[in-house]
C-alpha cells in the first residue's frame, strides 16, 4: 500500500472503525468520568491526544532498537515506566515554559499518566504495523499518525457522549435507571452505532 493511502486509512480507522473507546474499549474511565460537560470532555481529549503522540514518539524507537526481536515481553513494563516519566517531565516543562497550556490541561495531565488508552496505543503501534515490510522512518510515521487518529477518535467519542449525557440530564428516566445505569446503556448504544463503521477504510 502507498504511504499516503496507508496514512488516510490509519486516520479513518482510528476515528471510526477502530475507535479507541467505542470499539476497543480502552480509556473507559475518563469516557464515563469526564464526559458530563462538553468543554471538560474536549480539554481531557486534547490532553489525551497530546500524551498519546508524545508517548508514541518515545516508546516506538525504544521498541524498535532495544526490545525487538528478543525482549518484546518487556514491552508493558518499559512502556509504563517511560510514559509515566515522560508525562511528569512534560508537566514540569509546560509549567516552566508554556504556562497557558499548563493551565488549560490542568489536572488532566497527571490523571492520564497511566491511562490504559495511552498504554494501549503504544502497544497497538507495535502490533499493527509489520516491521518486516517497512523501513523505520515509515513505521515511525505510521505510529505517530495512529496515535493522532486514536486521540482524535477519543475526542470524537468523548464529545458525542458528552452531548448524549447532557440530553440525558433533562430526559424523563425511570428512577431505577437514573445515574450510572442509563449512562452505561447509552455508552453501549454509542458503541453499537460505531459497529456500523466496520469495513470502512480497510
Amino acid at each position: 500500500m502507498k504511504t499516503t493511502t496507508m496514512i488516510v486509512s490509519i486516520l479513518l480507522a482510528g476515528l471510526l472503525t477502530n475507535n479507541m473507546v467505542l470499539s476497543k474499549f480502552l480509556g473507559i474511565c475518563p469516557f464515563l468520568g469526564v464526559s458530563k460537560k462538553v468543554n471538560t470532555a474536549v480539554s481531557m481529549s486534547i490532553a489525551v491526544t497530546f500524551v498519546m503522540i508524545i508517548a508514541t514518539a518515545v516508546t516506538y524507537p525504544i521498541y524498535y532498537y532495544l526490545l525487538q526481536p528478543k525482549y518484546e515481553y518487556l514491552e508493558t513494563v518499559v512502556f509504563i515506566l517511560v510514559i509515566a516519566a515522560i508525562v511528569q517531565f512534560i508537566e514540569i516543562f509546560l509549567k516552566k515554559y508554556i504556562k497557558p497550556i499548563y493551565n488549560a490541561l490542568g489536572i488532566y495531565l497527571p490523571l492520564i499518566t497511566t491511562n490504559c488508552a495511552v498504554l494501549g496505543i503504544t502497544m497497538l503501534n507495535v502490533t499493527d504495523f509489520d516491521i518486516t515490510k517497512y523501513s523505520f522512518g515509515k513505521l515511525y510515521l505510521f505510529s505517530l499518525t495512529n496515535a493522532l487518529s486514536a486521540g482524535l477518535g477519543f475526542m470524537l467519542a468523548m464529545v458525542l457522549f458528552a452531548g448524549v449525557r447532557q440530553r440525558l440530564e433533562t430526559a424523563d428516566i425511570p428512577e431505577f435507571m437514573k445515574g450510572l445505569p442509563i449512562t452505561l446503556v447509552a455508552a453501549a448504544l454509542c458503541s453499537l452505532s460505531f459497529l456500523g463503521f466496520a469495513g470502512i477504510g480497510g
Binding site: Y71, L74, V78, L81, V82, A85, Q88, I92
Partner: peptide, 18 residues
C-alpha cells in the same frame, strides 16, 4: 540492564527537570 538503564535515565531526567 535494559529496564534498569531506562529507569535510571527516566529518574535522572525528572530529577534534573525538577
Amino acid at each position: 540492564i535494559i529496564v534498569v538503564v531506562i529507569g535510571v535515565l527516566a529518574g535522572l531526567l525528572l530529577a534534573f527537570a525538577s
